[in-house]
Design a protein around this nucleic acid. Structure first.
Lengths: 153, 153
DNA sequence: CTTAATTCAGACAAGTTTGTCTTAAATTAG
DNA sequence: CTAATTTAAGACAAACTTGTCTGAATTAAG
């Protein structure tokens, strides 16, 4: 798992907001949870983190909810990932060695740095807007096909 | 975390064996655990998995231990990864959507498939021997620099 | 045969992530 | 002001991963 589940959910919610074409108004978390097939309470907790980190703005009461704090083309996926999972992804060793670096590399360090920079580039270059546009085109989805993931027998 | 800790440890142990230049003889798990700075009991459990999966051979009693079941150039990292973490890595969606595929892609699917194939290619093309050789050259390491990883304050 | 060394098996504990629930606080509408 | 709606906060539980321990089984050596 490259991203935690919390991070997956946070990204899906952020993309849902960006794709909702209602950037001005607040969308309730329960509506989002329903649309995305996620636990309301769990999503609430995750979005609280994003609100605390300044990526979203929330308001309580009727017609309350959350919205993106900035235009969707000024937030990229890496912002969300770092807010939820921290900078782990940026410098983690593929063999889990702490202190792995150019100076003290593990035997896979060079190759892994290359792959990792591909990942960070993807998250850095993808804005919520650019990704949401693909969703709006209708050919991409944000919700699970199957409710319960198949477990091993 | 791309690989579980168990998988990290299993890979390190397998590479340790491949780099030990004692392919014929058995190496005790306690010796390996000591050398790699890992918990003996935990490593034992992981290596039992690799033994059950046919990647290692073990023998009990004095001078017992484990060794690679096949020559180090016929085992690649992917063999170890799949034995321990399962095929998760091969088809997992970056947004955690189950059923994500070319037919039902998430909005990052195309880019992620490309990155993922880079990862699988790395693990497929890296044999224990090829990686162990780099270790034997002395410029790469398999053990943690710092014992206790720093926790967030 | 006895003893020591070692893996095997599985119970158990600790830690982390994921998910649920309840109550409080804030906001809006009447 | 009151009631309804919604997020905020945090306790708690469930599930999974990681780590520890004990005893059994096997092997080698004397």
């Amino acid at each position: 798992m490259v991203l935690s589940k919390s991070c997956d959910y946070g990204l899906r919610a952020a993309l849902f907001l960006a794709a909702s074409e209602r950037e001005e108004s607040f969308v309730s978390i329960s509506e989002m949870a329903k649309a995305l097939g996620l636990s309301f309470h769990f999503l609430t907790k995750i979005l609280q983190t994003l609100t605390r980190k300044g990526l979203m703005v929330s308001t309580k009461g009727p017609h309350g909810g959350v919205r993106l704090a900035r235009p969707a083309d000024s937030i990229n996926l890496m912002d969300i990932v770092i807010a939820i999972d921290g900078p782990r992804l940026l410098n983690e060793c593929v063999l889990g060695l702490n202190g792995c670096s150019d100076q003290h590399p593990c035997p896979l360090h060079r190759q892994w740095v290359s792959i990792r920079s591909g990942i960070t580039e993807l998250f850095n270059q993808s804005t919520l807007k650019s990704v949401a546009q693909r969703i709006a085109e209708g050919s991409y989805r944000l919700i699970d096909l199957i409710e319960e993931p198949e477990k091993k027998v």
